[in-house]
Amino acid sequence: MTGTDHSSDASTDGVLAALADPTRRRLLDLLADGGEATATALAERLPVSRQAVVKHLAVLAAAGLVVGGRVGREVRYSVRPEALNATAQWMAALASDWDRRLAAVKRAAEAAAPEADRG
């Protein structure tokens, strides 16, 4: 790449691994739309058991994407959008680097095109 190190760090790897599962992405969508929710309330909106939701929430929490807080006997989960910042910055840098590379390929192809027309 360029002189800048665009490699992901452990937190980015954890976020990407957590987001790889469609059920976990759906949980994040549900929490983002509704604010806070319990595992039971989330399980009612998904085709998986409450126990499966709890396991998925544990993965999301380990990646820093959700946080759970006790309210009486319940644990209410909410999204931590700031946890996506490092991953978003890494992805933006990666995309920018590829944009730069593709622009260079385009310039080279356009510069070679007039020569091909003459031949």
Rank of each mutant, 00 (worst) to 15 (best):
A93C: 03
L102R: 11
R24E: 08
A37M: 14
R107F: 08
A113F: 12
D33N: 02
S11Y: 02
G68C: 06
L57P: 00
T38H: 10
L94G: 07
A103I: 01
L31N: 05
S78P: 00
A52W: 07
V15M: 04
A37Y: 01
R100H: 14
Y77L: 08
R25N: 07
R45M: 06
Q89D: 08
D97V: 00
V53I: 01
D21N: 12
K55F: 02
A116K: 09
A108H: 09
A104C: 03
V105F: 09
A20W: 03
G64S: 03
T2K: 07
Q89W: 08
L84K: 04
R25D: 06
M1W: 00
D29K: 02
G119V: 14
V48I: 15
R26G: 09
G14D: 13
L31H: 04
L102A: 11
R24N: 04
V59R: 10
T40G: 12
R118M: 11
L60P: 01
T23C: 05
L65M: 06
R80S: 11
S78A: 15
P81Q: 10
M91S: 04
L84S: 04
R50D: 09
A112P: 09
P47Q: 02
S11D: 05
G68W: 07
G3Y: 02
A63T: 10
D5Y: 06
Q89M: 06
G64M: 07
M91A: 15
E74T: 13
L30T: 01
P47Y: 02
V79S: 02
Q51E: 12
L46R: 02
G72R: 14
L30S: 01
A108F: 07
T38P: 05
S96L: 11
K106T: 14
P114L: 11
V75E: 10
A111Q: 15
L28P: 06
H56Y: 04
L94M: 02
A88Q: 09
V105S: 08
V15S: 03
A32Y: 08
L46N: 05
A111P: 05
D21Q: 05
T40L: 13
R80P: 02
P22C: 06
A18D: 04
P81W: 01
V66N: 05
P81Y: 01
L46K: 00
R101D: 10
